[in-house]
């Protein structure tokens, strides 16, 4: 199907039903709706412990209309590899009818950046045939919002009550350095861009990585109605960059590209931070101005690095 400009033009297919256990405003079901539309019904989902699992509904009920294997926290890379490899063999033997369904992980930043990192990295290195989606809400939300490797500098979590003193690592760039066929970042606020990227990934064989920036109301402390708006602010400030890389060739996507090229001015970083309760401590800090200036410099550098990489 052609890539549409409008959400309503996307296929009707849903992999998630109404009435999940997710919090109001949760980005995970929003993201999964787009995934379902882009991948269609012939897919198998693998999940690790996370909000997306805690909100499935209690056994024997489930909100998912796609076969799901809930695996252990560090298992995503290997389990998806196992499913994918076992399907290949059984389809080749004629035991299971082809074509092969799309195997994909729907895993949080905890299951991707931290405890599951080794397994995801190894799957990328082996080029196992599946898509790894990381929905990045920048914390271990399910267990009550503890810090993760994706939690940004100064953000308060229940294990960094005074604000995180370290920055985040760049998982998407780390994945890019594994040289898979496709790596992309996306945002819950840009569903068409996300849809396009999934549709592209669907047609590629081997390991594919898509990371979705997914603001979490209860975790970041903003009202449930603001998920998409906060996501948009993250992109417009440059705090979250949209890009994709096909066979290692990196392309920065709009509107990040215009920021990186200096064609549009980034939105106010302070405005983005102050609507999130997790930065309340920073906002009251005497050294706030300076701290925000340092964060802005970090963003500038990241965008410059991306731009340089896109021209390689």
């Amino acid at each position: 199907m052609s890539i549409s400009a409008k959400l309503t033009d996307m296929p009707d297919h849903e992999l998630i039903q109404r009435g999940t256990g997710a919090c109001a405003g949760c980005p995970s079901p929003m993201g999964l709706r787009i995934v379902g539309k882009a991948l269609g019904p012939d897919a198998i989902m693998v999940m690790t412990p996370s909000c997306a699992v805690a909100s499935i509904g209690m056994m024997p009920k489930s909100c998912y209309d796609v076969p799901v294997l809930n695996v252990c926290f560090a298992s995503a890379g290997a389990s998806a590899a196992g499913i994918s490899g076992a399907l290949d063999v059984q389809i080749a033997k004629g035991v299971i009818a082809g074509p092969k369904p799309v195997v994909f992980n729907w895993v949080g930043d905890g299951g991707t950046y931290d405890i599951g990192f080794q397994g995801v990295s190894a799957a990328a290195e082996r080029n196992d045939d599946f898509i790894h989606f990381c929905y990045n809400n920048e914390a271990y939300s399910n267990t009550g919002v503890q810090r993760s490797g994706a939690t940004p500098l100064h953000a308060a979590t229940t294990t960094t009550p005074a604000g995180k003193s370290e920055g985040k690592k760049s998982m998407p760039l780390l994945m890019l350095d594994h040289a898979p066929a496709y790596v992309a970042t996306a945002s819950i606020a840009y569903p068409q861009d996300f849809y396009k990227k999934i549709a592209k990934a669907k047609d590629i064989k081997g390991f594919r990585y898509i990371e979705l920036h997914a603001p979490c109301g209860p975790g970041w402390k903003f009202p449930a109605s603001e998920t998409v708006e906060i996501g948009r602010m993250a992109v417009k400030t440059g705090a979250w960059a949209l890009w994709e890389a096909e066979n290692g060739a990196l392309t920065i996507n709009a509107p990040t590209l215009q920021l990186a090229e200096g064609k549009t001015k980034p939105s106010s970083l302070e405005d983005y931070l102050k609507v999130q309760g997790r930065f309340a401590g920073l906002m009251k800090d005497a050294a706030k101005e300076q701290a925000i200036a340092v964060m802005a410099q970090g963003i500038e550098k990241e965008l410059a690095d991306l731009l340089a990489r896109s021209k390689r």
């Binding site: 693998v46 294997l69 695996v71 252990c72 560090a74 298992s75 890379g77 290997a78 389990s79 998806a80 590899a81 196992g82 499913i83 490899g85 076992a86 399907l87 290949d88 063999v89 059984q90 033997k93 035991v95 299971i96 080794q118 397994g119 990295s121 190894a122 082996r126």
Partner: peptide, 28 residues
């Protein structure tokens, strides 16, 4: 061999892979 042979990066991953493969109906 009649099946796929996969070298993974740890035993945690070994068991994660074979358990998930078994869920598809495979003999592992």
């Amino acid at each position: 061999l009649t099946g796929k042979y996969l070298t993974v990066e740890s035993e945690h991953s070994v068991m994660s892979a074979v358990a998930a493969a078994a869920a598809t109906g495979a003999r592992t």
